[in-house]
Amino acid sequence: MVEHPARETQKDKRDFLKLILVGSSFAWLASIIYPVISYLKPPKQSEVVVKSVKAGKISDFANDSGTIIKFGSKPVLLIRNANGEFKAFSATCTHLDCTVQYRNDFGLIWCACHNGKYDLNGRNVSGPPPRPLEAFVVTLQGDDILIHKS
């Protein structure tokens, strides 16, 4: 709000209206700049986590290990078996919704809550789980691992 400098007089300077005008202009600017600066400030989690498909690079996963991947709002257990093959299952135990894990000492998927066990095809082999785990499809795209719903 730059005023006409030529017409400026002593009287104008003390002008209450102008004071408010200039003051509120600055306040207004601040109310624009603050969100913009905050927006540009890198967030705590600095990048988008790819929810669904990309689980990571092949080299991120050791043989004979399992990793929980967030798939939308549900966990998925990505297993790399001793031969280096990948498999993915819903990590939600079919018994009571606990999150299962891969136990390389058993070579099985194991639920800590009630000792439910599934084999590496997701079949419930021991303990209370009533159904097999839902399988997900793992495909390799170059060096990337992609997980899809089957």
Binding site: P35, Y39, K41, V48, V50
Partner: peptide, 17 residues
């Protein structure tokens, strides 16, 4: 595989996003 997630990220993680 990123478009939707990045908008979601903008709306939930970025301040004033």
């Amino acid at each position: 595989d990123q478009a939707f997630e990045s908008i979601h990220f903008i709306m939930s993680k970025v301040q004033f996003g």
